[in-house]
């Protein structure tokens, strides 16, 4: 890859900005599916109206502008013969970026269950890793994934992430406790994996799902 290769375009999907007028209605539908929210987040699932989501988009862009520690993309299908117009399918973000340490947290979601077995997740992760390592020049990425989301674990591990942390019984859902895994990927590891890949685009595989991550609040350190 070089400077002529788009940072934003995959084979079937692309990264795009938020469309404040149109996206909220669609995302509002996704948030009425509790499974989507529970795969995505540790906060209690609750549906959001289009109005609430528009406020959220404003907050996301305001925070990105002022605090400069996050990046948010929408994920859209690329125009094809069967579907000539771009269509919103999800989002991907880098958050809690620490510039001094070169670390950021990745989080992604594909909203409609029908869009989940098409390889979009793999493509999105490919794009966001390149963006994080080759444009933001981060040193490593972190993701937190619940034990009850094995599809997301497979997706991230396939992309080279390594399971580093097991926060035992950190989650409580459906009347039982679940572990939460912390995964990490170093730029060196990503680079050597990319160099080994064939130049041909990967075929979409049939296994990924949406979503990932909940990022623990900053763990303050120490004692002494």
């Amino acid at each position: 890859m070089d400077i002529h290769t788009s940072l934003y375009e995959g084979q079937h999907i692309c990264l795009a900005p938020i469309d404040h007028d149109k996206d909220a209605e669609i995302e509002s539908k996704w948030t009425h599916d509790p499974e989507y929210l529970r795969l995505l987040d540790t906060a209690p699932a609750r549906p959001l109206s289009a109005w609430q989501l528009k406020k959220k988009y404003e907050a996301i862009e305001k925070s990105a502008e002022e605090e400069k520690n996050s990046v948010y993309f929408t994920i859209r299908t690329r125009p094809s013969e069967s579907e000539p117009a771009e269509r919103l399918v999800g989002f991907v973000q880098l958050q809690s970026i620490e510039w001094t340490n070169g670390n950021g947290h990745v989080r992604l979601g594909i909203g409609d269950p029908h869009d989940r077995l098409k390889g979009y997740g793999t493509e999105v992760l490919g794009l966001i890793l390149r963006y994080a390592f080759c444009e933001l020049n981060l040193y490593r990425l972190t993701a937190f994934i619940p034990e009850y989301n094995p599809a997301a674990l497979r997706l991230f591990e396939k992309a080279g992430f390594v399971r580093e942390v097991c926060r035992r019984q950190a989650l409580n859902r459906d009347g039982r406790r679940w572990d939460q895994y912390g995964l990490g990927l170093l730029r060196d590891e990503w680079q050597s994996a990319v160099e080994k890949q064939p130049a041909v685009e990967q075929q979409p595989s049939a296994e990924q799902q949406p979503t990932v991550q909940n990022q623990p609040a900053t763990g303050k350190q120490s004692e002494s």
Partner: peptide, 15 residues
């Protein structure tokens, strides 16, 4: 900090 009441989980620090 970061108390998640629904999960019964939090982060702590000391100095």
């Amino acid at each position: 900090g970061g108390v998640q009441w629904s999960q019964g989980d939090a982060w702590m620090g000391i100095g």
